[in-house]
């Protein structure tokens, strides 16, 4: 409540509950997509390297 009053006093943008809910859902979706991309790039790298990754000179 105090924060809302502070925002009001400063003339800042105050999000409604619905806007907050949607922002949370967007943030979650972006996190899932980024996590999925990390996993995808990891798997693609392993597949592209193939069995040669195990026979490389050490």
């Amino acid at each position: 409540m105090d924060k809302k009053r502070d925002d009001d006093r400063r003339g800042g943008i105050v999000l409604t509950e619905e806007q907050k809910r949607r922002r949370r859902a967007r943030s979650l979706a972006i996190a899932l997509v980024l996590g999925g991309l990390v996993l995808l790039f990891y798997i693609i790298t392993i597949v592209r390297l193939g069995p040669n990754v195990l026979t490389r000179p050490l």
Partner: peptide, 22 residues
């Protein structure tokens, strides 16, 4: 106009988009 309405009209306000919209 209040800053919030002005920002929304200029397309700079808080987004109303849900994941399903994207």
């Amino acid at each position: 106009l209040s800053p919030q309405i002005a920002a929304e009209q200029a397309g700079l306000g808080p987004s109303l988009a849900g994941v399903d919209d994207f």
